[in-house]
Amino acid sequence: MPDSKGVLVHAEIADGKLCAIATEMLGCGRKLASALGQELAAVLIGSGVSNNAQEAIAFGADKVYVIDDPTLADYRTDAYVSVMEKLAKQVTPQVILLGQTSTGRDLAPRLAFRLNTAATLDCIALDIDPSSKRLLQTKPVYGGNAQAVFTCDTDPQIATVRSKAMSALPQDASRKGEVITIAAGLDASAIRTTVLNKVKEQVAGIKLEDASVVVSGGRGIGGAEGFKQLAELAQALKGAIGASRPACDSGWVSDACQVGLTGKLVAPDIYIAVGISGSSQHLAGCTGAKTIIAFNKDPDANIFKVAHYGVVGDWKVTLPAFTKKVKELVSG
């Protein structure tokens, strides 16, 4: 596609608003579009999403494509790949960005295969190569032990973007842009999945992704009982509970608490890791924190390579003393 042009962002919507990742991608997409001297477009897909077009413009889009159809209410692979394929063939963008979300990580690879091009998932940096004008796509690999930079010679160049890796532009309600409605034109019989039910696993208290303090426990906590002590500290700091994968796999806390490469990515002001060794896969989810504090009995634990402050010792002894002092300080 030699005449491909423009950057297209798939902007997801939740609870009637653009998701944070959508605004972050529009911020990044704006930079890429300027570097290419091209336009930035957003696409909104779903049911009842047309109201969000102005919001996408306010966050940087020049053009917004709206594909609003009741059959698109739930994310279903066949339906979403089909409408994205149709749009990509119609507007021939040079770059397509999607969020590294449940939707984006499912949609992007199939779309890339459908369009005979390549995708790079979970990018943390995207730049235009000044000489070739191709997209340089940086993604963590080997669980975060390394980073790889990829390019691809075919258009569209597709990338999914990790949350909190890019910054959004300030919302500017006075920005003007064009809104274009596109018919979904779906054949219902070609959608081979049905969403029967959506189950929310409630975790009490503050939402992990939004918390300004996260208290996480790992295998070293040893059982569900120990997490009660972490909860006590989290409560004193108005924070949320996180965990490493073994703590979730063992059923000590809900799977929804998992922090890391294949769990949640958090960037709180304070991240407190207790009985966590600091595997690259876990760190992938928490190194965005401003201050990292580690409690570990092993002075050589990898967590101390990224922590700012630490205490070496059995957490069963060091943590209660810490919690007690914290309570005094925050109440006093």
Binding site: T117, A146, F150, A307, V311
Partner: peptide, 28 residues
């Protein structure tokens, strides 16, 4: 199709301050 331009290890500057005390409780 995806060309690898570069593979590198991100540098993590380790500058942890370990807090110590007479007893583990004091350190906490």
């Amino acid at each position: 199709r995806a060309k690898l331009v570069k593979l590198f290890q991100p540098v993590r500057e380790g500058k942890v301050e370990i807090i110590t005390g007479e007893t583990p409780e004091e350190a906490g």
